[in-house]
Design a protein around this nucleic acid. Structure first.
Lengths: 230, 230
DNA sequence: CGAATCTTTTCTGTCGACAAATAGAATACA
DNA sequence: TGTATTCTATTTGTCGACAGAAAAGATTCG
């Protein structure tokens, strides 16, 4: 592929590499444990190692890559043994962000929610797993934004990122079942937010999160000896 | 001051600058809005701009500094107008981490808690505000660690950092009152954790957090026109 | 005297090169 | 043949230098 666009704007190099590497990691195009070579990336993007390095430092700060001093840097492993903390945090953030959205959203937030909801439904209908996972994350991130608490939004985004990788594994193993149920739950959540029904939003967020978690947990409990990349 | 130690280990430069700048920012030795000059820092630490830059990228990732493209980079401002999201997140994290500590702590975690509790009490008795603020943050961070959820620990640490700056402002304005009450509450929290009483830990964490929040809120509601650095 | 334009200055962003550190290959030795 | 040691190769961490961008200052023109 020809990633080497010749003319770039001055400060955009690191950002571009960061965005692209991030997507490739979260979509499992870069498998956990893959080595990351600075020189190789520099050649691929037609730039020096300096902006590459800046992107890697950012990714490292978010825990997406890990760096062994003076030695290699690689895509962070998925910690399958300690999933409960992730699930606990996810469920709580689903609850809190949905409740806050019901409380703090403004009229101008709603069109984006409806649009992302429709997009998600379309990807489910089209059985496009990658787009489905990304759109689902975008939908809940938008709800969090409408809740207007940047601290919760930040943590939730990170948790959604982390689960993006696991959902890819999930749908890679079980392509047969597609969650129409989640589409309906999204509709219910939007309705509760619009009605400013805090308790309903909270409850729906919790139920929704627990359904997703249960689905993923079922996968990993069934597949203890499946060939899951470390 | 002579920060220029001549011989450093290979990968330690950026880390050292990061730690030091972070402390200076959180202790308000660098006021919010202060400009940060890479060349100046490079001279001060006797190293090139490259490791300085890495430290700055890290700090920027945590929101402690802000960068205008191609132009200056400066210490992040404290957003006094939107304190409720910070307080909401703080209270929730105090609750969750204390509850999880009661649930998941191991025997080996307790000595550290007792030690940090004693240190905090000592700093309160000595009226050393800077040490008090740092030790208090360390105490609650240790509780969060004992709860063994790295996602909550990460967010909570960031929130504690952010409030460290505000507590400095607080005690700078009101040096007369020192919170013996918080020392006692810390003791109660430890007791609830040791007893594995989840609900009590949750409730104490909530009360404790709300007391601190109320104290800080009282300052800012009284001092709308005080000379608070932007 | 004021406003618009040009110049200077002062940063940042990027580059290519070099040196240190480590892993792995090659070698020597028992 | 197995083990310890040296050597090599690869990759990172750091450096000094240069060019681009934006603000501050100087200059010209109305």
């Amino acid at each position: 592929m020809s990633d080497t666009l010749s003319e770039r704007k001055r400060g955009s190099g690191a950002r571009m590499v960061y965005d692209l590497l991030r997507d490739e990691i979260l979509d499992l195009k870069l498998a956990p444990g893959s080595p990351i070579d600075e020189v190789q990336l520099a050649e691929r993007f037609g730039m020096s190692r300096t902006p590459i390095r800046e992107a890697l430092v950012r990714l490292s700060g978010e825990g997406l890559i890990e760096t062994l001093p003076n030695r290699s840097t690689m895509v962070s492993a998925i910690d399958f043994l300690n999933l409960s903390p992730l699930f606990d945090a996810l469920v709580l953030m689903y609850r809190v962000t949905t409740r806050l959205a019901a409380q703090n959203h403004r009229a101008e937030d709603l069109p984006a929610l409806h649009r992302l909801h429709a997009e998600y439904a379309a990807t489910v209908a089209a059985r496009d797993t990658s787009a489905m996972i990304a759109t689902n994350a975008a939908f809940h991130a938008a709800i969090a934004e409408a809740g207007r608490n940047p601290y919760f939004t930040g943590l939730f985004s990170r948790l959604l990122d982390e689960s993006r990788r696991m959902l890819h594994l999930y749908y890679r193993s079980y392509e047969e079942q597609f969650p129409q149920r989640f589409v309906d739950e999204h509709a219910d959540i939007i309705a509760a937010i619009e009605a400013r029904d805090l308790d309903a939003a909270d409850r729906l967020g919790k139920t929704h999160a627990e359904a997703i978690v249960a689905q993923v947990q079922a996968l990993f409990s069934r597949n203890d000896r499946l060939d899951i990349p470390l």
